[in-house]
């Protein structure tokens, strides 16, 4: 499951979807769904934080250079990668993480996924839109943007996993 090829393929596919589909559609109310964090989230648990951040940085540069955001995606993805080990530790399951097992919706359970991924993506989106607006006078609009985008991104990420991730067999 954790073969590197899957991650490379996912990396490329998610960048392309983000740039050519999600950045292009206009949902209104300032919604901008971002699914790239999911790739970072699904990287192996045992991966070092510095490596995680490096991958996030490269991914962010790819997205930024194709959508003229000059480092916004990079910055927020690096933050996401930096916080992931911390959040994983905080919400670790009782019998710790199993190595060689992907931390997706099905292997870790819905509750765990909602808390960890929800927390991380909320921080990610907040960071992104904070720097995009760069103006605290429109805090209402900022909150609206963050919350609505988080909901859409989260649902998209869940949907993508339901469609593409192989479900483990029932034991």
């Amino acid at each position: 499951m954790n073969r590197p090829l899957i991650h490379v393929f996912r990396f490329i596919a998610f960048v392309l979807i983000q740039v050519f589909v999600l950045n292009q559609i206009e949902l209104g109310w300032g919604i901008l769904p971002m699914i790239c964090p999911l790739v970072i989230f699904l990287l192996p648990v045992e991966l070092e934080t510095s490596m995680l951040m490096l991958i996030a940085f490269v991914m962010g540069v790819c997205v930024d250079s194709l959508s003229n955001t000059f480092g916004l995606h990079t910055s927020s993805l690096v933050l996401f990668a930096y916080l992931r080990p911390w959040v994983f530790k905080r919400f670790a399951p009782r019998e710790d993480y199993e190595l060689n097992k992907e931390t997706n919706l099905f292997t870790m359970g819905t509750n765990w996924f909602v808390t960890t991924f929800g927390t991380l993506i909320l921080i990610h989106h907040l960071w992104f839109f904070l720097f995009e607006l760069a103006d605290l006078s429109e805090i209402g609009f900022l909150i609206q943007k963050v919350l609505l985008s988080v909901i859409v991104s989260f649902l998209l990420c869940v949907g993508l996993q339901i469609i593409f991730v192989k479900k483990p067999k029932e034991r």
Binding site: T49, T69, G71, L72, T74, S75, L79, F131
Partner: peptide, 13 residues
């Protein structure tokens, strides 16, 4: 390392 990457990205932005 995090601060360095963050600084690079935000400085550029």
């Amino acid at each position: 390392f995090f601060a360095m990457l963050q600084f690079t990205a935000l400085y550029f932005y």
